[in-house]
Amino acid sequence: MEPLIIKATEYTPEITLDKEAALFEFKGNSLPENAVNFFAPVIEWFEDYKEKPLEKTEVVFNLGYINSSSSKKIMEVLEELEEIMDEKKVQINVFWRYEEDDEVNEDTGKAFQEITSIPFKLEVY
């Protein structure tokens, strides 16, 4: 499966989805004007990944500012991961990393943690 690599800009995150390297990471600010378009290839990639996922998938969110439309799309990513976990009976773990003084990011992570059934760990860095 081809990896999906999206380079970071000041307002969009670096995204690495690489099955062969078992690397699944979102890093940077996420404030695209059109989050639907920006996240479309990401959702599509996970839909393909769902066909034959790894036995263990660890997804790391290491984000700074996140606008509300990005949060909605991240929720969709988590829903895709939930489906993979439930249908393929594989292990999925999500790590939500935030800076100690970033209350907004911490609260956003806690909200995702409450909604999703995926093991979801909050980590301060």
Binding site: V36, N67, S69, S71, K72, M75, A111
Partner: peptide
């Protein structure tokens, strides 16, 4: 916020911002 986040994506963002 949690309720808005967990709704299926619509054109709007459920006023999350």
């Amino acid at each position: 916020y949690i309720k808005g986040l967990s709704k299926k994506m619509t054109k709007k963002t459920a006023g999350l911002g």
